[in-house]
Write a protein that binds this DNA or RNA. Sequence first.
DNA 1: GTCTATATGTTGATAGAC
DNA 2: GTCTATCAACATATAGAC
Lengths: 210, 210
Amino acid sequence: MPSASATSTVRAGSSPGRRGRPGYDQQSVLNIAVEVFNRHGYDATSMGILAENLGISKSAIYHHVPSKEDLLALALEQALGGLESVWDAPESQSGTAEHRLEFVVRSTVQVLTERLPFVTLLLRLRGNTETERAALERRRSFDRKVAELIAEARAEGTVRTDIDPRTVARLLFGTINSIVEWYRPGGALTSEKLADDVVAVLFDGLHTRS
Amino acid sequence: MPSASATSTVRAGSSPGRRGRPGYDQQSVLNIAVEVFNRHGYDATSMGILAENLGISKSAIYHHVPSKEDLLALALEQALGGLESVWDAPESQSGTAEHRLEFVVRSTVQVLTERLPFVTLLLRLRGNTETERAALERRRSFDRKVAELIAEARAEGTVRTDIDPRTVARLLFGTINSIVEWYRPGGALTSEKLADDVVAVLFDGLHTRS
DNA sequence: GTCTATATGTTGATAGAC
DNA sequence: GTCTATCAACATATAGAC
């Protein structure tokens, strides 16, 4: 399973390899910015609100990043990079379609939880700017690959055929993506158990089995 | 099943009982406004953009509605009213928990498709204002009732017990709510077939059954 | 029911000192 | 790396004519 590099550092000072005093570096500004974007919504977050949350002035932000939109682009790159890395793992490329599909579902859940705030931001985009539209296109490309996998599993006979494959794909993404709306790391539910649960519900359903 | 009254009228002129010439009435302004809100996001939609989409001036909007936030409140009332009406039907109040849960899932899908743009707006709220927070609280109240139903079905032995009931509820809502992100009425997929598909996937899973 | 102003505040971003 | 001060653009909303 591809491992997304940790993005837990909040303030620059706590970064292992970093010298110098207080202040922020770009990554630590980004981490807080994404959190604030998710809390208020990207559009509703002004540079003023962001500055308050950072504890610095509006202008100081522009020392670290050229614009609000660049902040968004940086965040989306972290989300998309993580998702796309799912396809680098050999388990996503060989084996039965059923196995590859389950692997991709598990990996996607893993990326969602590891890069939770970044993927959350991605999943809430409306496509208002060119930056957003480009990110949405990369996301659609990811979705298309998963849809192909579903089609293969269907042809293989391991996925039910009484439902339109597009509907199957949509519901699968709905179930997985909705995780960002409620899952919080550090609780009783580990990301591994969550992946187990998602796979169980998606493939076997909520009913008790006879 | 509770039926949400139609909200398909776009321009006032096409309203059955309406007199007078062109122009808008409040409901027709609301219908277009909600569509634009969903396309750009509520915060990103200025009264200027809205006016363009309506084909009237900014100020003219204020003849129909006191503020942008009132427009939002009106829209949310349509969404929440529809969802809450699910509990008015006798089928949601008696019978096995399994039957009541399936009925509520079907009814919710029905409301989602009938009042699609309104529910879409509700599901994307971030809770920035008092209006939004009040709506989110009503939505949480709806969610809580469904969670209780899941707990009953679990006690009844019809829902699997190897997954935390809160996770079950979250995944169920995720699957259902994600419908607003892709379903469009008027296509090949009717809302009845969609409800069948959602019930089938949620309760029996994507796998072929032996 | 719609319009042309316009009042009043907030936005993202820049200039230049420390 | 941060600040204060400032800008033009754009926001929501109002006043009053047609």
